[in-house]
Design a protein around this nucleic acid. Structure first.
Length: 485
RNA sequence: GGCCCCAUAGUCUAGCGGUUAGGACGUCGGCCUCUCACGCCGAAAACAAGGGUUCAAGUCCCUUUGGGGUCACCA
């Protein structure tokens, strides 16, 4: 059966390595819209094959964030389904089984090269300015019996794809037509790592086939690894799904959207007071057009009007101004009661108020002081004009101070969670390495995070403000400080 | 650097051989008005360049330029 005749089953396959990414919501939206329009299924699969990068809290945040924007799925780790398990770490036996098939068919081989050797090979290629970088196929010619013997003896190895040595692979992309690749450009990609976990390439092909995925709708960054996937489908003797590569969301400078240049976590937009329907509508506008001059529409309306012919391929720049404009439209059409509900669900929740009260109650003498004393807990970006002069560290160049702030943000991003203990530990270590006095460094942070010289204890304040708002303010302050002459 | 993708205003886009190149965000000006915001009206602002094909190219083809992605035991 041709891929296009199959029942529509699509999926998103996020990796639980950090905060829920807007790119995930973007790709999920298109998958979801297509599936719903076609009466198909939308599946959520967790690609957690890299245990070193997986974060414990990330998976749940992905579920929560997608549900918050209003996307739901038919099958997934949390809702089950007939094609489970939906978490790749729970499918190891399946991959092992399939790797054996590939080995048997001669479409893959064992590689015993050490990490050191691979590094050397790569370094040599780079030094020689080789046009094609990649594995030198050192182990490809290994005698089969020899390979079996070494593996049986327990020697560490990976399994690699045996890419054809000549010819071309053509990828069919729904939006671009035929995209040809010379096979000489394709590396003998690792399929199974030495720890027994599959790489993305193997897992994604095996799972997509077993889960009967009809259309692979993903971001454009995957297009150049698609020929490897096509080769794998061929190696297994399977029909590939239809590939649809969406354009990449961009920063203002047109580079792939990144956390250094743009708020990239869905939670940021939630905390910044963006309504989920506005975010979803905005994401739809990134690369897709409704038809006519229509720009504001619901998910249901998008599903009805959806079509691949209305997708444009230029990488859309993620433009906050337009998102806020759309948000304003949605906000203004809510009833007063609904706005109150939105506020209560946002930062005026009882739970959040209790947290804020815990921090400021000793600092106020009358109830009427609460609002002015806590304003920065309820606002987004701050105005530093009044305190910029104070954002200094004695005897340190402003540029250096700015850079240090950025370093702290990076350090905090590398850590899991966001609580007092973690923040203090990281900030103290940071401060010590810089050789700064905590008095100066922490005042700098306080000013960045609250815009004031007086506040409740810094780390408690940051914890209550939350990861997204805190980081955003630290970055903003860093830029401002660095720009001082 | 090799390979691949992309190309209409600052930004998001409509256009699918014949249009005064349309809409939106943003910007600027005006109206409304007790202020502000909303709303309304208006303005500036684009087919990257060069070759073809064609009676006719923003639309088709090629080249150049520019931008992006990718070249991991990460996804």
């Amino acid at each position: 059966m041709a891929a296009t005749d199959r029942p529509v089953r699509v999926r998103i396959a996020p990796s639980p390595t950090g905060d829920p990414h807007v790119g995930t919501a973007y790709v999920a939206l298109f998958n979801h819209a297509f599936a719903r329009q076609q009466g198909g299924k939308f599946i959520l699969r967790i690609e957690d094959t890299d245990q070193s990068r997986a974060r414990a809290d990330s998976e749940q945040m992905i579920f929560d964030a997608l549900r918050w924007v209003g996307l739901d799925w038919d099958e997934g780790p949390d809702v089950g389904g007939p094609f489970g398990p939906y978490r790749q770490s729970e499918r190891r036996a399946i991959y092992a089984e399939h790797v054996a098939i590939l080995l048997q068919r001669g479409a893959a081989y064992r590689c015993f090269c050490t990490a050191e050797r691979l590094t050397e090979v790569r370094a040599a290629q780079q030094a020689a300015k080789a046009s094609v970088l990649g594995y030198d196929r050192h182990c490809r010619g290994l005698d089969a019996a020899d390979s079996d013997r070494r593996a049986a003896a327990g020697e560490a190895h990976v399994i690699r794809l045996a890419a054809p040595l000549k010819g071309r692979v053509v990828v069919h992309d729904r939006l671009r037509g035929e995209v040809p690749f010379e096979v000489t450009q394709i590396d003998d990609q690792v399929l199974l790592k030495s720890d027994g976990m599959p790489t993305y390439h193997l897992a994604n092909v095996v799972d997509d086939h077993l889960m009967e995925i009809s259309h692979v709708i993903r971001a454009e960054e995957w297009i150049s690894s698609t020929p490897k996937h096509v080769l794998l489908y061929q190696g297994f003797g399977w029909d590939p799904p239809e590939f649809i590569h969406l354009p990449l969301l961009r920063n203002a400078d047109k580079s792939k959207i990144s956390k250094r240049k743009n708020p990239v976590s869905i939670n940021y937009y939630r905390d910044a007071g963006i309504l989920p329907q506005a975010l979803l509508n905005f994401l739809a506008l990134m690369g897709w057009s409704f038809g006519g001059d229509r720009e504001k529409f619901t998910l249901a309306e998008m599903i009805e009007a959806f079509g691949w012919d209305k997708v444009s391929l230029g990488g859309p720049v993620f433009n906050l101004d337009k998102l806020v404009w759309l948000n304003e439209k949605y906000l203004h059409e809510l009833s007063h009661e609904e706005v109150v509900d939105a506020l209560l669900a946002w930062r005026l929740s009882r739970a959040h108020l209790v947290e804020v009260v815990r921090l400021v109650r000793e600092r106020i003498k009358r109830l009427d002081e609460f609002v002015p004393a806590t304003e920065y807990f309820f606002s987004g970006d701050l105005d530093y004009a009044a305190v910029i002069a104070e954002m200094v560290v004695p005897d340190v160049e402003p540029v250096r101070v700015g850079r240090a702030l950025l370093e702290l943000v990076e350090r905090l991003e590398a850590r899991e969670g966001w609580d007092h203990a973690m923040l203090e530990e990281e900030a103290r270590a940071w401060c010590q390495e810089l050789g700064w006095k905590t008095k100066h460094a922490f005042m700098l942070l306080r000013l960045a995070v609250t815009g004031r010289k007086a506040s409740p204890p810094l780390f408690d304040t940051m914890a209550v403000l939350g990861k997204e708002v805190s980081r955003r303010r630290l970055r903003a302050a860093a830029e401002l400080v660095a720009a001082r002459t």
